[in-house]
Amino acid sequence: MFKRFDGDARQPVEIFVDGRPVMAREGDTVSAALLASGLDVRRQTAVSGAPRLPYCMMGVCFDCLVTIDGMGNRQGCLVPVRPGMQVEIQKGKREIGR
């Protein structure tokens, strides 16, 4: 769907998506890094389990919901990546306690 522009000279930042290492760039949001990763990062909705990807990328649609460092229902499009960040693709509802 998306590729990185060739002239992007930002520092790489390693994050983990469901345990797999993914190379993001400094300044990426989690959702941008996921979209650029080429991995299947579709979440499943809480209501029907339908597959979704981010829709608005500006904090209003909540289709980018993702578990970040053990906390569920984070808006991936608003959270910047940090080295070593653990991202889990959310399947269904947020679990109690995370």
Partner: peptide
């Protein structure tokens, strides 16, 4: 996605 979403990732991440 929205066109604005594509514009957002373009400006902020060069995607």
């Amino acid at each position: 996605m929205t066109a604005g979403a594509a514009q957002t990732v373009l400006k902020s991440s060069g995607l």
